[in-house]
Design a protein around this nucleic acid. Structure first.
Length: 295
DNA sequence: CGTCAGGTCTCTA
DNA sequence: TAGAGACCTGAC
């Protein structure tokens, strides 16, 4: 897509960018390393770089950035090439999605790193978001590379597989990962030894990619769908966590519908872009508490 | 003190 | 092949 770009010292500004609201992007459940600053902007780390994102009027301001990185990393990371107007148009044919989109109009699906997402979502299983974030930060602080200090905080890259493959389960547990430590250790060994090429999985079909990902222990149906949607361009992946299950039961299916059938329903209904539907629904459900604790 | 959270693994019938 | 329990950890 074409954008009107302005470059200032250490900043890139995109003017009149629709379909981009920092709060929606960073709090719709897809990422763990972006945090809100006092001024309402968000700072995060990805690809070994620290960036701040702020919305003013209808402009998006990327700070601590240069044009080269913007073009080579962040343009892709923020999915700026995609026509969200078209996605919204297609999904809005459904009444519930239309409401969910109105609510989370600024959501974008980030294109994150498969290895980082693999570990992040292994940690997410039966866990809480603040604790997931804490564990990921701890792993990065201890075993990642120091990048820089920004707005009074120190930033570290997410550790590569060969930084983790020689750690003991206890080392990993010390980062607050709990019972998932053994899964992380195992994944690190598998990836660093190239037993599985995590970066090649995106070339498989959604179905085969899912099978491949589930070879990692600690990776089941939900986590594999997250990895595919958030880091492998699988737009039809539809991760079903507790929130999505609740919202689907509330609006679309019977309460006792099996997860596999909910997924099939969604993939049929949302024709190839179920993943985007999932993001709008997740944000809608979690922010409004839809279906929470009926009993 | 129990309960529970972005699920998955293990064990049993 | 499906369903019940267990599971690190810490916030309530």
């Amino acid at each position: 897509m074409e954008y009107k770009l302005k470059e200032e010292s250490g900043k890139i500004i995109i003017e009149n960018l629709d379909h981009f609201e920092p709060k929606h992007v960073f709090e719709c459940g897809q990422c763990f390393r972006w945090n809100e600053e006092e001024d309402g902007s968000y700072t995060g780390v990805a690809h070994g770089k620290v960036v701040n994102v702020k919305k003013e009027n209808n402009n998006i301001i990327f700070s601590n950035i240069n044009k080269k990185d913007f073009e080579e990393i962040w343009y892709n990371y923020f999915d700026l090439d995609r026509d969200y107007g078209k996605i919204k148009e297609q999904l809005s044919k459904d009444k519930t999605l239309k409401e969910a989109i109105k609510f989370g109009y600024g959501i974008r699906v980030l294109k994150q790193d498969p290895w980082e997402i693999l570990i992040s979502f292994i940690i997410s299983a039966n866990n809480r978001i603040p604790m997931i974030k804490r564990a990921i930060e701890k792993l990065s602080e201890k075993y990642g590379e120091f990048i820089e200090e920004y707005k009074g905080r120190k930033y570290y890259s997410f550790p590569s597989a060969d930084k983790l493959d020689n750690l003991t389960v206890e080392d990993i547990k010390a980062c607050g990962t709990g019972f998932r430590a053994k899964y992380i250790q195992s994944a690190a060994i598998i990836v660093s030894s190239s037993e599985i090429d995590i970066y090649a999985i995106k070339n498989l079909s959604t179905e085969n990619a899912r099978k491949e990902l589930m070879l990692f222990s600690g990776v089941g149906p939900k986590v594999s769908d997250c990895i595919m949607l958030f880091s492998m361009n699988k737009d039809d992946a539809f991760p079903i966590d507790v929130w999505v299950k609740r919202v689907m039961e509330y609006f679309y299916v019977d309460d006792d519908t099996k997860l596999k059938d909910i997924q099939k329903f969604a993939q049929d209904k949302f024709e190839g872009i179920a993943g985007f539907a999932q993001q709008y629904l997740f944000y809608y459900a979690r922010e409004l508490g839809i279906g929470r604790k009926k009993k």
